[in-house]
C-alpha cells in the first residue's frame, strides 16, 4: 500500500489513481475499490461511476477547468490536481480556485511530480494531501511545512492577509508583531 502525506502526517493510502491509456483512451474502471478518475472520465461516465461500489475521486490536469465540477463536488471523496512537472505552477491556481471559489472542503491532493520543496506553497494554496514522487522521503519532507512561520498574502489556508490581521489586532497603531 502506498503512503502519502495527509494533514502533515504520513499515512497509508488506498485510493487507486486511474490514468488515461497510452493512446489517450479512458482507463478501464475496476469493479470495486476507491478510485480517482480523470476529469474527462467523470464527465463521460458520470452515472456509471456514481452507481458503482467504492468511493470516487476526480483529478484535474493543469489545463482543466475546475468550474466543470463545481456542482458535482458533493460526489467526491477526494479532488486531486496533477503536476506534470514540479515547475508547472498551474495547479497552484487550481487549488485556490477549488478551495476559495468553489468551496471544496474535502481532501485536496497534489499528484504527479510533487516534491518536498514545493509542499509549503502547495499547502498555502489549499492542498492538504500530497502523493509525493516515489523517490521522496516522506518523513523528512514533513519539515518543509514549517519553513516559514508567517505569510503576507491572503491564501486558501489563511483567508486574511497579514495587513488585515494586524489591523484587527491593533486598529490604531497597526504595529502588532
Amino acid at each position: 500500500m502506498a503512503s502519502i502525506i495527509k494533514q502533515r502526517k504520513v499515512v497509508a493510502d488506498n485510493w487507486q489513481l486511474l490514468k488515461p491509456q497510452a493512446g489517450g483512451g479512458a482507463p478501464p474502471i475496476p469493479e470495486s475499490g476507491d478510485i480517482i478518475v480523470p476529469l474527462a472520465v467523470w464527465l463521460d461516465q458520470r452515472n456509471a461511476l456514481l452507481s458503482r461500489p467504492g468511493r470516487l475521486g476526480v483529478w484535474l490536469g493543469g489545463d482543466d477547468e475546475p468550474a466543470l465540477i463545481a456542482e458535482d463536488l458533493k460526489n467526491f471523496g477526494v479532488v486531486a490536481v496533477h503536476f506534470p512537472q514540479f515547475t508547472d505552477g498551474r495547479g497552484y491556481s487550481l487549488g485556490r480556485l477549488l478551495r476559495e471559489r468553489y468551496g471544496w472542503r474535502g481532501e485536496l491532493r497534489a499528484i504527479g511530480d510533487v516534491l518536498r520543496d514545493q509542499l509549503l506553497y502547495l499547502s498555502r494554496c489549499g492542498f492538504d494531501a500530497f502523493a509525493l514522487r516515489e523517490d521522496q522521503d516522506l518523513q523528512a519532507a514533513l519539515c518543509a511545512f514549517s519553513d516559514f512561520s508567517e505569510a503576507y498574502q491572503a491564501t486558501a489556508d489563511q483567508p486574511l492577509p497579514l495587513f488585515r490581521r494586524r489591523f484587527l489586532a491593533s486598529p490604531d497603531g497597526m504595529e502588532w508583531s
Binding site: 505552477g89 497552484y92 509549503l120 506553497y121 502547495l122 498574502q153 491564501t155
Partner: peptide
Amino acid sequence: RQWSAFHPEFAYLP
C-alpha cells in the same frame, strides 16, 4: 513587494 514576496500561487509562473 510584500504582496509578491513568497506569494505561493505565483512562484512557478510560465
